[in-house]
Amino acid sequence: MSALISARGIAIRFGGVVAADGVSLDVFAGDHLAIIGPNGAGKTTFLNICTGYLKPQGGTVQFKGRDILGSSPRAITRLGIARAFQIPQLFLEQSVRENMLIAAASQARRFAPFARLADIPERGDVEHLLALVDCADVADRKAGELPEGKRKLVDIALALALKPEVLLMDEPTSGVASSEKFTIMDTLVAALRERAVTAVFVEHDMEMVSRYANRVAVWSAGTISRQGPPAEVLNDPEVVRTVIGG
């Protein structure tokens, strides 16, 4: 099986801090890959590199065999890699529905200057997505008025509205009430399966990892120190010592 995203020899440092020193990592179609590691290890940096927000000092990143290093976040989004953020990035002064419709209009390239946003053919899709992430009840509220947990869900829904092939998520359920976490992840993962979306998520919560990932990569001291199925990786004594703590 060939990789969808293939990173080779990624090296990046911020001043004296080495975030990645020769990291190579493959993301295969259908993967639900969890990236775990200590705080500040460089996990989010990896997402920033894959989406064109940061340029590493060395290495290559390919998407379906095509070099994407140096492309802008916009160009990479257009190729089919969408991103959800650890701190939700929404249009706070617009309604949740408008947020979603902008994403859907962008995906379908509907930019006729005098057509109504609310009437685009994708609006049914948007309602479906909003229901999926349990945000149908707040669709008319401004994104800035939502509690953190809901914002997080809208942030993920925005990425899904782009109909991506790969979805990169940064701690998808941080900030979401722990009582809702699993319900939300269950629906989210079901939606990803239904749409055949490959997912990569940075995660600190090992319960989430063991439950939802089919593969785990451990990012530690600027390298991928271990990768494999969750059952193996999470029980590795070295991983337990350095990452999980215990």
């Binding site: 989406t51 976040p73 916009r74 989004t77 990035q89 249009f91 902008i102 962008s106």
Partner: peptide, 8 residues
């Protein structure tokens, strides 16, 4: 930033 991340 998010505008760009929506492909716009």
């Amino acid at each position: 930033t998010r505008v760009e991340y929506l492909g716009i």
